[in-house]
């Protein structure tokens, strides 16, 4: 039977603001399917975002939704979660939102290992403001503010999340939508901070400027240029260096923030 998206979409809110060919819709779809797979109660689920094209996603879906200020989704979400740890809290953020202006909140949410699932819509660019470089724009690439090529080097979202202490860390792509959905579902069920680096595309402000072909070409690029971490073991170091690794990089059981705080409440009440 066909998947019933209507159950999760807010009536009358489409069409969305995204450009034709924008891959943010695929990530949204993966999140909805993951929520359905896990069976979350819509009333008990909060979706939080910052500002950017990706961050407009919560407006379309029928949950408790919170569209905040640029970069701050995790900080708002931390208040929501700690105020009522029984709520399911999911954050959606663009790469700029999550890692530039929101970078501090990102590493600290990871460090606390608070039970929030963070999906980074990583299109390597500031889409909404017209294509300025972001912390994940590769070195040398063109953006409206790097007319001579990007002098910066990009963050690796997976390495950053693991270094900061997130306990579920994965990377998927919009070409591999089914594994992406599974990763998001696993991130939601995982107790602790989960980061899913969802590689996606902005044909309008990034693809065109860097001559990456059509919207479809950009998505197909992931097919040939990514490799699962298991399969990567069979490649030579040179071959591997050419590819972006995908899959689940970490899934650890560690004390979760709200559970630790509950211990403090119990202790203080006893005192």
């Amino acid at each position: 039977m066909a998947f019933d998206y209507d159950k999760y979409m807010r009536p009358g809110k489409l069409p969305h603001i995204w450009c034709p060919g924008c891959a943010h819709g695929i990530v949204m779809k993966s999140i909805i399917r993951a929520i359905d797979r896990v069976g979350l109660d819509k009333d008990r689920t909060v979706i939080v975002s910052g500002i950017g094209c990706a961050s407009r996603m919560p407006g379309y879906v029928d949950f408790n939704t919170l569209h905040t200020t640029h970069g701050r989704s995790l900080a708002f979400a931390t208040g929501v979660k700690l105020a009522d740890p029984s709520l399911n809290v999911i954050c959606v953020a663009g790469d700029g939102d999550a890692l530039a202006i929101g970078g501090n909140h990102f590493i600290h949410a990871c460090r606390r290992n608070i039970d929030i699932t963070m999906v980074v819509f990583n299109n390597n660019i500031y889409g909404m403001t017209g294509g300025q470089f972001s912390p994940t724009t590769p070195h040398g690439k063109l953006a409206s503010t790097t007319p001579y090529g990007n002098p910066d080097y990009a963050f690796d979202v997976v390495e950053l999340s693991m270094g900061a202490g997130a306990t579920y860390v994965s990377r998927g792509t919009v070409y591999h939508a089914v594994p992406l959905e599974r990763q998001i579902a696993d991130g939601i069920t995982h107790k602790g901070m989960s980061v899913i680096d969802a590689l996606c595309t902005c044909p309008t402000t990034y693809g065109r400027r860097n001559k990456l072909g059509s919207a479809t070409d950009m998505i197909l690029w992931f097919k040939d240029n990514t490799v699962g971490i298991k399969a990567a073991e069979r490649l030579s170091p040179e071959e591997r260096a050419e590819k972006i690794l995908t899959g689940v990089f970490r899934q650890d059981i560690k004390p979760e923030y709200c559970e630790e705080y509950q211990k403090i409440i119990d202790m203080a009440k006893g005192a």
């Binding site: 905040t68 701050r72 900080a75 931390t78 208040g79 929501v80 105020a83």
Partner: peptide
């Protein structure tokens, strides 16, 4: 941000 989030709850 955190206090606004908590207030919403």
């Amino acid at each position: 941000a955190s206090i606004i989030g908590a207030s919403l709850v």
